[in-house]
Amino acid sequence: MQITVKTFAQTREISKTPTLSIDVVVDSDTEATIAHVIAQLRELDRNWALALEGSILTAKNQQLCDSSTVLSPGDEVAFFPPVTGG
C-alpha cells in the first residue's frame, strides 16, 4: 500500500528526508497502521532510526493521531517533534 511520508523540524533534519513515498508491507489479514510505517522506516537506514527515536508526534492526513491509527492507500503520514509555536 502506497503512502506519502513527510517530516518536519528536527525529524526532517535527522532523517535527511523531507518527503518520501513508501510501500507499506503488511500481511493480507492485517490492517496497516502508523506503527508499521515507523518499523519499516527504522529499517531503512540509521538516519531514520535516529529521527524516530524519543517523543515524536504523528499526523495522518494533517490530523494528529497515534501509532495505532489505521492507514488507507494514498494517506499522508507526518512525523515531527513536539511543537514550539506561540
Binding site: A9, Q10, A59, L64, P81, P82, V83, T84, G85, G86
Partner: peptide, 13 residues
C-alpha cells in the same frame, strides 16, 4: 495561546 503552543505544527529555531 496555551493550546496553540501544543497542537499547531510550528517549530522555532
Amino acid at each position: 495561546m496555551d493550546m496553540l503552543k501544543q497542537s499547531v505544527p510550528l517549530w522555532k529555531k
